[in-house]
Amino acid sequence: MALYSEKVMDHFRNPRNVGVIENADGVGEVGNPVCGDIMKIYLKIENDVIDDVKFETFGCGSAIASSSMATELIKGKPLSEALKLTNKAVTEALDGLPAHKIHCSVLAEEAIKKAVKDYYDRNGIEYDKGLFPDCEGCEHCCDGH
């Protein structure tokens, strides 16, 4: 029994959409180096659709795999759909994560939400604040720091 599913290892070994988008329309970063994971999502948006998405991740195998999978799940999708992406959907698409790694999928969900919020803020687009709970991504792992 391996530590991770084959899906996780595939996305870890061959991550999709790694990199940076220069002049991105929205950028979201969550986590911090003290906790040992940071995810950064870059979005290129055309007519409310995610035209391109890239990520950078500092973290463990499941953090890299979660970012890769999450970007695959929102690429080419309307923003409204991207905002509905849950950590559960990311975990399921990866054929599951070990219990203590679930927070990696939470980080992916939160990084995407933060990038979309950044896009809305930059363009003065009105949105329901309830869609973006005040999350700093890392509260799961950073108790006590």
Binding site: P15, G19, V20, P33, I38, K40, E56, T57, F58
Partner: peptide, 14 residues
């Protein structure tokens, strides 16, 4: 090369 933390270190942000 895929670490935003490393990018910040290289760019002098951290």
């Amino acid at each position: 090369n895929m670490s935003p933390f490393w990018r910040d270190l290289v760019n002098g942000k951290r």
